[in-house]
């Protein structure tokens, strides 16, 4: 079972606001634990929202707003994808993230095989994945 651990923070703390050496080392050690346990599939940290943009959708309209997104307390700061035997194991790994503050959301990743293949959106997903395949070898 694949789970995504989404690291959220309000950007006022060290997690997203240029982590200090020690915090960085602790997180590095944690990532190493995930690698050594053979459970991590992917994991990335994100630049602060001051460098990002947010799009909002309203019918055919698209509004693009520059960061930072100061009004939100729960901003995505990074994520891990882990492959584990159970939801409880994912939670146990999440508990071990060396965070002094902030919050982490644990969500199960859908596998394409979980879906009804005749579903219209699944068909679109397949097209998208084929396009991803194209860019992979380009």
């Amino acid at each position: 079972m694949k789970f995504m651990m989404l690291l959220q923070s309000d950007e006022s703390n060290s997690v997203t606001n240029g982590p200090e050496e020690e915090a960085l080392n602790r997180m590095g050690a944690y990532n190493e634990e995930l690698i050594k346990a053979g459970v991590i599939l992917a994991g990335e940290g994100l630049h602060p929202t001051s460098e990002g943009v947010r799009l909002t959708y309203d019918g055919d309209d698209r509004t693009v707003v520059d960061g930072p997104f100061t009004e939100s307390k729960e901003l995505l700061a990074g994520f891990w994808i882990i492959d584990v035997a159970s939801k409880e194991e994912a939670i146990e790994w999440a508990k071990r993230i060396p965070l002094p503050e902030g919050q982490v959301e644990v969500r199960q990743v859908f596998e394409l095989a979980d879906f009804d293949q005749s579903n219209e959106y699944v068909q679109k997903e397949k097209v998208w994945r084929e396009e991803m395949g194209t860019s992979r070898t380009a």
Binding site: L41, A42, I81, E111, L112, A113, K126, V127, R129, E130, M132, G133, R136
Partner: peptide, 13 residues
């Protein structure tokens, strides 16, 4: 097989 259903993350790994 429908190659669109191959898991790209695992292929990259």
């Amino acid at each position: 097989q429908d190659r669109g259903r191959w898991n790209q993350l695992l292929i990259r790994r």
